[in-house]
Lab assay of single mutants.
Amino acid sequence: SEFQINEQVLASWSDSRFYPAKVTAVNKDGTYTVKFYDGVVQTVKHIHVKA
Rank of each mutant, 00 (worst) to 15 (best):
S1R: 15
S1D: 10
S1W: 12
S1F: 14
E2T: 09
E2K: 13
E2H: 13
F3W: 07
F3Y: 09
F3Q: 03
F3L: 06
Q4Y: 09
Q4D: 08
I5R: 04
I5W: 04
I5M: 07
I5L: 10
I5F: 05
I5A: 04
N6K: 03
N6G: 15
N6S: 03
N6V: 05
E7F: 07
E7Q: 12
Q8G: 07
V9H: 02
L10Q: 04
L10S: 02
A11K: 02
A11G: 03
A11H: 03
A11R: 00
A11P: 02
A11D: 04
A11Q: 01
S12G: 09
S12A: 14
S12W: 14
W13L: 13
W13I: 13
S14H: 13
D15P: 05
D15A: 00
D15G: 13
D15S: 02
D15Y: 01
D15W: 00
S16E: 12
S16F: 05
S16Y: 05
S16T: 11
S16H: 12
R17M: 14
R17G: 13
F18W: 15
F18S: 03
F18Y: 12
F18Q: 01
F18M: 08
F18T: 03
F18N: 03
F18A: 02
Y19T: 03
Y19A: 08
P20K: 03
P20I: 09
P20Q: 04
A21I: 06
A21M: 03
A21E: 04
A21F: 03
K22R: 12
K22Q: 12
K22P: 01
K22L: 15
V23R: 00
V23L: 03
V23E: 01
V23C: 02
V23G: 01
V23T: 02
T24P: 00
T24R: 02
T24G: 01
T24E: 10
T24K: 07
T24S: 06
T24M: 14
A25E: 07
A25H: 10
A25T: 06
V26M: 07
V26G: 00
V26S: 03
V26A: 05
N27K: 01
N27S: 03
N27M: 05
N27Y: 06
N27V: 01
N27T: 04
N27I: 02
K28E: 13
K28D: 14
D29L: 01
D29V: 00
D29H: 01
D29F: 01
D29A: 00
G30N: 04
G30D: 05
T31A: 03
Y32I: 14
Y32A: 06
Y32V: 12
T33P: 01
T33C: 08
T33L: 08
T33A: 02
T33S: 06
V34F: 00
V34A: 00
V34K: 00
V34S: 01
V34N: 00
K35T: 13
K35C: 10
K35P: 02
K35V: 14
K35W: 08
F36L: 02
F36Q: 00
Y37K: 07
Y37N: 11
Y37H: 10
D38H: 08
D38T: 11
D38C: 15
D38I: 06
D38E: 04
D38L: 06
D38A: 04
G39V: 04
G39N: 06
G39Y: 07
G39D: 08
G39E: 06
V40P: 08
V40W: 10
V40C: 14
V40D: 08
V40T: 15
V41Q: 06
V41W: 05
V41C: 08
Q42D: 06
Q42K: 15
Q42A: 15
Q42F: 07
T43P: 02
T43G: 02
T43M: 06
V44I: 09
V44F: 00
V44T: 05
V44W: 06
V44N: 02
V44M: 04
V44E: 02
K45F: 07
K45E: 10
K45L: 13
K45C: 12
K45A: 12
K45V: 09
K45N: 12
H46C: 13
H46P: 15
H46D: 13
I47E: 14
I47R: 07
I47G: 12
H48D: 13
H48V: 08
V49Y: 05
V49D: 05
V49Q: 07
V49G: 07
V49A: 09
K50H: 09
A51M: 09
A51L: 10
